[in-house]
Amino acid sequence: MPENTAPDGATSIGAPHIEFRDVVKRFGDNTVLNDLNFTVAKGERVTLIGPSGSGKTTILRLVMTLEELTGGYIHVGGAPLQYEDQGGKRVRVSDKTRRRTTTQIGMVFQHFNLFPNMTVLENITEAPIHVMGLSKAEAISKAEGLLEKVGMSDKRDFNPSQLSGGQQQRVAIARALAMDPEILLLDEVTSALDPELVGEVLAVLKDIAAETDISMLIVTHEMQFARDVSDRVMMFDQGSIVEEGSPEKIFSDPGHQRTRDFLHAVL
C-alpha cells in the first residue's frame, strides 16, 4: 500500500486511521447519530451491525463525505475530513481538500453504481487515469490485474448491463481497489444480490482482506462474513454503540439483551 497521503502530513504512527469525535448527524428533525465517538486503527476491520435505521450506513456515507456532518469532527489519517477545529471554531474544510483526503478512501455500494456508459475496463481505469494521473497503459495493466483477482478477466470489454449482479459487484470492488485505497467502505455490498450470487462476492472480499492491510469499515447482514473478516464488531441501535468487541465475543457471548435480540432475529 502507498504511504498515507494526508494533505498536511499530520499522520503519525499509532494515530487512529479513522476517528469520530462527538459526531452528530441529523436529517431535518430526525437525529440519526448523536454524539458518536469511535476510532478505527490502521489495518483494522470493523463491522457495524444492528437493525436498519440505526445509522450504520450513515456512518459510512459521512466518511465518504456523501453526507454533511451536522456536528463534531471526523479525522482520517489524522487530517480533518469535513470540518476542522480552529481554536474552538468549527470550520468547513474546502471541497478540494476534502477530495484530496477522500482519494485514499474507497467505497463499494449496495447497488454497485457502475457507470453504464463505460465498459468494465473503462469503469476501472477512469479514476486512476484522471485522478491519480496514471498513463492509460499503466491503468489498463493495473485494471487487468484487479480483474484477474476478482475473477472477471474475461469480461473486461463487456458493458455492466451484460453482467449479473454478483459480477457487477466484483467489478465495483476492482474499481474501488484501483485507487489504492487505504480505507475501504463496504455498504451492504451483498444486500441487492440474489442469494446464489452472494458467495462469489464475499469470497473475493475475504481474499482481499487476507492479502492486504486496508482498513475496512463494513456494514453487512452477512454475519458469517462479519465473523470471518472482522477484528471488531460494533452493535448499533438508534445512533449509538450498544456494545463492541471481538466477533467471537459479540456473536457467541453478547453482553446486552439488545444485541442478543438482534442476533437472534438475523441468525
Binding site: M64, T65, L66, T102, F109, N113, H130, V131, A176
Partner: peptide, 18 residues
C-alpha cells in the same frame, strides 16, 4: 440520472466537471 452515479463519482474522487 440516478443519485448512485453521482455518489460513485464522488467515491472515486473524480472532479464534478469530468
Amino acid at each position: 440520472v440516478p443519485k448512485g452515479q453521482y455518489e460513485a463519482l464522488s467515491a472515486l474522487s473524480l472532479s464534478p466537471v469530468r
